[in-house]
Structure formats: structure tokens, C-alpha cells
């Protein structure tokens, strides 16, 4: 699989935003073209070649290597093919992504997968706060696709999630699924406090339910439903730690809420 490799020379002292460059990087014919693309380091204008070494030729794959957490907007509006990131990515990874795959061999900053509409993101490390949440100025968060985090995720994971699936293999911070509009979140580890705050619809599946549920969620009983089989099978298909799920074990306890808003969200977990 051919493609360009873009390697960070040294960690910049200030933040670098690659968001405006995704399309131009993807359509570039030569490595030299990419090196000439304008980029800002803080408020200092330079060219990409000042910060990165670029080699390779056009292809289905783009590799960003030696990346550090000051590089924001990686894979913004990514639409097809594979983007592989080695190192820790900054904020807004995969913002507005519409297709293809992004794999991060490291951690990501805040607002990863914000505005994502389709495609798949795999984060092998931890995700910061606001995973799948809208960036300031936007009304809805993630709107399709799948994000799987092999580590932990921060606060406000899935805030204003509209559609799609977020899977966290580790723990999540506070306010997971806050203001959720629809879509699904599945968490293998521990849930932070105040989960589902102002959640309107959607499903939040937990392997380990919290010891205390929010007061604005009501117990809706335990049910064995065909839908649970489909849902668990869908989670299992995403791979990773979720492969252990058994769709036939589809008897799930449900809490409904947040009743302070629409109240159609569901917290689902196996009743022990």
C-alpha cells in the first residue's frame, strides 16, 4: 500500500493546526508539494517542510510519524483511505471525518471525532475530554461512524452525540453521554460520576454499572429482547476487548432517563 509519510522533525513549542491541509495533502502529487504547504506555528507562518520531513508517493495510506500532542486537526474531514498516526495526537483528531479509517498508535487530545459523520477511528491509547462532542460553535457532536478507544476517555465523552458508536475499553470520566441526542456509547471500564446528564435519547451500555445511578434515571426493569442480541453483536463486531461479548447473553437491565429532559435514553448493563 503506497502513500506519503510525514514525519515531525522536532516537537514545536506552540500548537500547529493541520486541519486545513488534509485535502491538499491527500491530493498532492509529490512530497515536495506537501512540504510547501503553508502552516502556522502559533502565530508564525511557515511551510510544512520547516516542521516535517515528507517522503513517499500518492497512495491509499498516509502516515504521520513522531507526532506530538501539539499537532491539532489531524485527519480533519478525512474521507477515504487509511491515516495512521504514530505518537500522541493533539486536539480535534478526525474532526468532520466522512469516511475511511484513522488509527492512532498513541493518545489523542480533546474533541477527537467531533463532527464525525462516517468512517472508523481507533485510538490505541487514551482520549482526552469531549470525545465525540461538538467543538465550540457547533450544535451537535459526532454524527455517525465508529470510534474505539483502547485506553481511557476523559470527561464529557459523547456530549451531544447525535449518531454513531463510541467504544471505550478503559474508564470514562465524568458526565459521559451528557446531553446525548442519540447514538450509542459502550464502556468496559468504570463510569465517572453524573453519567447521562441531560441525556435525551440513545443507549449507554456499561460492562460495570456505577454503584449509584443519577437521580434523574428510573429503573425500567430487566428484559431479554431480540434487539439486545443485535446490539451486543454489533458491539462485538467492533473487535478489541468487546470481542468477549456474547450476544446470546441478551438479558439486560435498563434505566431510562434523563427524565429532566426527554427521558428516552437508556443505560444498559447485564444484571448480575
Amino acid at each position: 500500500m503506497s502513500g506519503f509519510a510525514i514525519i515531525l522533525k522536532d516537537a514545536p513549542r506552540q500548537r500547529v493546526d493541520l486541519a486545513p491541509l488534509t485535502e491538499r495533502i491527500c491530493t498532492a502529487k509529490k512530497a515536495a508539494e506537501i512540504e510547501k504547504l503553508p502552516v502556522f506555528v502559533g502565530n508564525r507562518k511557515c511551510v510544512l517542510g520547516d516542521l516535517f520531513v515528507v517522503y513517499g508517493k500518492p497512495g491509499e495510506r498516509l502516515v504521520l510519524d513522531n507526532i506530538c500532542d501539539k499537532i491539532d486537526g489531524i485527519g480533519s474531514r478525512w474521507s477515504e483511505g487509511m491515516l495512521e498516526v504514530y505518537g500522541d495526537a493533539g486536539d480535534r483528531l478526525g474532526h468532520g471525518m466522512t469516511g475511511g479509517d484513522i488509527i492512532v498508535h498513541g493518545n489523542v487530545g480533546n474533541f477527537a471525532a467531533s463532527g464525525m459523520r462516517d468512517g472508523e477511528i481507533l485510538i490505541e491509547g487514551n482520549a482526552g475530554d469531549f470525545l465525540g462532542a461538538p467543538i465550540p460553535g457547533e450544535r451537535i457532536g459526532m454524527n455517525g461512524g465508529v470510534v474505539r478507544v483502547e485506553g481511557d476517555a476523559g470527561a464529557r465523552t459523547g456530549d451531544r452525540l447525535r449518531r454513531g458508536l463510541i467504544l471505550i475499553e478503559g474508564d470514562v470520566g465524568e458526565l459521559c453521554g451528557s446531553r446525548m441526542i442519540a447514538g450509542s456509547i459502550a464502556v468496559m471500564g468504570d463510569m465517572g460520576p453524573r453519567l447521562g446528564y441531560a441525556m435525551r435519547r440513545g443507549a449507554l451500555f456499561m460492562m460495570r454499572p456505577p454503584t449509584r445511578f443519577p437521580e434523574t434515571f428510573n429503573d425500567s426493569g430487566t428484559h431479554t429482547l431480540p434487539f439486545h442480541h443485535l446490539f451486543l453483536a454489533h458491539l462485538k463486531r467492533q473487535g478489541g476487548a468487546f470481542s468477549v461479548l456474547n450476544p446470546s447473553d441478551n438479558r439486560l437491565r435498563k434505566y431510562v432517563g434523563d427524565i429532566s429532559v426527554q427521558g428516552s435514553g437508556a443505560l444498559l448493563f447485564h444484571d448480575s
Partner: peptide, 21 residues
């Protein structure tokens, strides 16, 4: 309630025996 799993949307209709999917 509807649920989109992958590319397929399902409707979950609450009924007396549980749920019609």
C-alpha cells in the same frame, strides 16, 4: 425508538409481550 446499527435502522416498538423489532 429507532436504532441505527451499522447501516441498518431498526424500529423498536414497545408492545405488551415486550418489544416488536
Amino acid at each position: 425508538r429507532s436504532k441505527l446499527l451499522g447501516k441498518i435502522r431498526y424500529w423498536r416498538i414497545p408492545i405488551m409481550d415486550g418489544e416488536f423489532l
